[in-house]
């Protein structure tokens, strides 16, 4: 996981050649009246690859949100409805959902009947894929939210107050950082699954979301803290302090706005990794619990039941997961380039 040095957006176009006098790179070159965010958006829009994959991801989200529509109005089958002995008519011929030796049917490419085939319990893969996407994306979003909020709060707190608070928070984060995300995830996930804290127990899909959100906190905490450490020494923070503003005011109105581009850059990064970790934890039995569908449960079921008989049960959810995560990653890369103009040099050459 990368530690991205935070830069406020719009520090001037830095894409000039080397050996260029610093004077040219000043703010004077910026179009007047264009804010840093607007400038970043302009740069992002020009990055067609990033925009394309951002659109792909948006499309995936929309399609997954429409899962109930597809399930009730087009496929006429629920996501958890197993039909191992069922038959249906395809192009005038009667087809078995599972063959006599229990091998599920592959993709029929008929939008109404097992478009992407069936799994070993006779469930419709296409319907489950959409419902599973809802779960995976929801977990990714909630986990990202948790990580960003906790990581930013703790980071600002530790960096601003330093001293003992910083020492304690930093070592706590170091401990979490020490462990492989998957090992820590299955450990906490299992403990929560069995014993639970409040509503967080059993098959509740919030359990993996909370676990994943917790595991990635140090990835945000560290860079945020580092940036706050430098920000708090800056003149405008000094000025605020001398005006007698409260710590809370300084943190929220002076420091937080300067962190915004760092935070924004981390959102897609954490989101992509959260979705990946959900699948991993689920594969190991500590994530989303059956019969709930998620991309992780589907890949996991496919690996456990359908190699080598019905590989589409691994391939379809797996590819979907990879495409979704890759879209976020590529869009996130473009976002970082847009917010950190210095990195434009990389493209210019």
């Amino acid at each position: 996981m990368s530690v991205i040095s935070g830069q406020s957006p719009g520090q001037g176009p830095g894409e000039l050649g080397e050996g260029f006098d610093a004077g040219f790179e000043s703010e004077g070159q910026l179009p007047p009246g264009v804010g840093p965010w607007k400038l970043a958006w302009r740069r992002l829009r020009r990055n067609r690859v990033a925009m394309f994959f951002g659109f792909v991801f948006l499309l995936i989200v929309v399609v997954c949100l429409l899962a109930p529509v597809y399930s009730t109005d087009i496929a006429h089958i629920g996501p958890n409805y197993g039909n191992p002995t069922g038959t249906f008519t395809l192009n005038g011929k009667t087809q078995f959902v599972l063959s006599q030796i229990g091998i599920p049917i592959g993709p029929t490419w008929d939008i109404h009947h097992y478009f992407l085939g069936a799994d070993d319990q006779g469930r419709d893969v296409a319907v489950r894929l959409l419902y599973g996407g809802r779960t995976s994306l929801m977990i990714g979003a909630v986990a990202t939210l948790i990580t960003m909020i906790i990581g930013t709060l703790l980071g600002v707190f530790a960096g601003y107050f330093r001293g003992w608070w910083d020492a304690i928070l930093r070592s706590a984060n170091d401990v979490v950082w020490t462990y492989p995300a998957v090992l820590l995830g299955i450990t906490i996930g299992t403990v929560l699954n069995i014993h639970g804290i409040g509503p967080l127990h059993g098959t509740n899909a919030l359990v993996p979301a909370v676990v994943i959100g917790f595991v990635y906190v140090p990835y945000v905490f560290r860079p945020v803290r580092g940036q706050v450490l430098t920000l708090r020494e800056r003149d405008f923070v000094d000025a605020a302090r001398q005006q007698g503003l409260s710590h809370w005011r300084i943190m929220t109105s002076e420091i937080l706005p300067n962190l915004s581009s760092t935070i924004v850059v981390f959102v897609p990064l954490i989101m992509a990794n959260s979705i990946l970790l959900e699948a991993g934890l689920t594969y190991l039995g500590a994530g989303v619990q059956p019969p709930n569908a998620s991309w992780g449960t589907m890949i996991s079921d496919g690996i456990n039941n359908d190699i080598p008989t019905a590989f589409h049960n691994v391939l379809i959810p797996g590819l979907m997961l990879v495409i979704a995560v890759m879209s976020i990653n590529i869009f996130g890369d473009g976002l970082r380039d847009a917010l950190d103009p210095r990195s434009k040099i990389r493209v210019a050459r």
Binding site: L276, Y283, V314
Partner: peptide, 11 residues
């Protein structure tokens, strides 16, 4: 970076 190892392994 977008490929879960167990999926690639299964492939």
């Amino acid at each position: 970076v977008s490929m879960p190892p167990f999926f690639f392994g299964a492939i």
